[in-house]
């Protein structure tokens, strides 16, 4: 009940629902992490930047 106890129920519907939510959040999180790391590598010269336009 407290913000520190994580409520989790072991049933199918719950797993599917939260599974999809965490997949979506995971994709968003991983995507942003990937972009930030890539940018950092390019800024510090470990990776060559591609030119646009």
């Amino acid at each position: 009940m407290t913000p520190f106890s994580f409520e989790w129920l072991w049933n199918t519907e719950y797993t599917i629902f939260f599974g999809l939510l965490y997949v979506a959040l995971g994709i968003i999180g991983c995507g942003m992490t990937f972009v930030i790391i890539k940018t950092a590598l390019q800024v510090f010269g470990f990776m060559r930047e591609r030119h646009f336009h």
């Binding site: 972009v35 930030i36 890539k38 940018t39 390019q42 800024v43 930047e49 591609r50 646009f52």
Partner: peptide, 8 residues
């Protein structure tokens, strides 16, 4: 930095 971030 920001330009690279935007492009990426």
């Amino acid at each position: 930095e920001l330009r690279l971030l935007g492009h990426n």
